[in-house]
Amino acid sequence: MSLDPAMVRRIAKLARIRLADDEVPRLQGELNAILGYVEQLAAVDVDGVAPLTGGAQMTMRMREDRVTDGGIPDHVLANAPDRIGDFFAVPKVVE
């Protein structure tokens, strides 16, 4: 499966990364090289194999459902690029 320029743009859109027009051919070549390399997995017989989803050799631990943190708006907002009061500020979303 080979990505065409339109698909490269679509992926960039999904990934929320703006691409300049002159970046598309280079990325198309690089992404196709990577996808071509991983294509070899199609040769492996995986019938009846359960996917391995995590790295831990354990079942997920449960914890009590209680609030363990909070009440620190200044810490939460300390790195905000823009803030208005105790809120993160962004460009207007709703007209």
Partner: peptide, 21 residues
Amino acid sequence: VRFGARVDGEDLIDLYERTRA
């Protein structure tokens, strides 16, 4: 939006895309 560098944009999506680019 919440931390790190930001590049302003015309709207929120544009801000995301420019920031990440």
